[in-house]
Amino acid sequence: MASIKCIKPGLLTTIQDKGRQAYQSMGISASGAMDKFAMRVGNILVGNPEYTPVIESAMVGPVIEMKFEGCVSITGANFSPKLNGDPIEMWKAIHVTPGDVLSFGRHIAGCLTYIAISGGLKIPTILGSCSTFIRGGYGGISGRALKAGDEIHVREPRISYKKLVRKKLVQRYILDYRENATVRFIWGPQDDRFTEESKEVFIHSSYKVSTQSDRMGYRMQGPQLKHVDSPDILSDYICPGAIQVPGEGQPIILMADCQMTGGYTKIGVVINVDFPLAAQCKPGDKIHFEPISVAEAQDLMKQRERFFYFLNKQNEALI
């Protein structure tokens, strides 16, 4: 049967898809791919529906043996991907045959690389998603990261690899993952709980991603932010991208696996189209936060969705 086999797992390699958005109202963390841009493009390149489960790997990529003929794509962070030891291009459909080994080399840019497989991985659905949620111990493969020896079945593709090989994303649409990222955000919902001076400091400084960062949240280090009175609020909803500031005044960007409720003030929320740029910052990278309006952010989101609409449309013509 068509499958892939994990030879070496890398640092933290999990199965992710769109996540559990629809279950947040029941108190469930959303999870899902951190860089959904990379996941969606990756899937489209190999002919899959854009939210098909993919492999997400942080900082050190895995070694994976292919036991099927089809195609794969590597998107997101650049960890110098190789097939049978030879460098392969990213953001492109790559033909693979049984016995081929995918591996990674030197770290070039970003934090999270994505491997999409034509046909998609066969993973049971828990709470509407295949996403691994390690803290909850469910999703993906038994709620854990990949380990050596794991074998995952690959589904029958809806489009033959012959129609997809060499399909690639035009260079200018590839996201630019930088060590000094500018990430746009919208003030609120509790920005009025910060002093005016602190709000100025927040948008005119850079914050470093600390080593205490994971799929739940990126802790930032930089100039201290001061609350007008207290950092606490009655617990309310937290969406991934929310920038929460506890009492010690250092912001935390909540990420895909974040708790969905919390009692700290949120100075702002990263806009949808820039969430992948924040997610791709690794410990030590710096983020400059730039405020924009809801209307501007939504225009950018509409442009982004139009882009995906056309990418998907090309695939529909091939089915």
Partner: peptide, 17 residues
């Protein structure tokens, strides 16, 4: 009403539990 980013709208009542 309070915008929470570009796709969430918070509807907030009085600050009391």
């Amino acid at each position: 009403f309070h915008a929470m980013g570009d796709h969430v709208l918070n509807i907030k009542f009085e600050d009391l539990l």
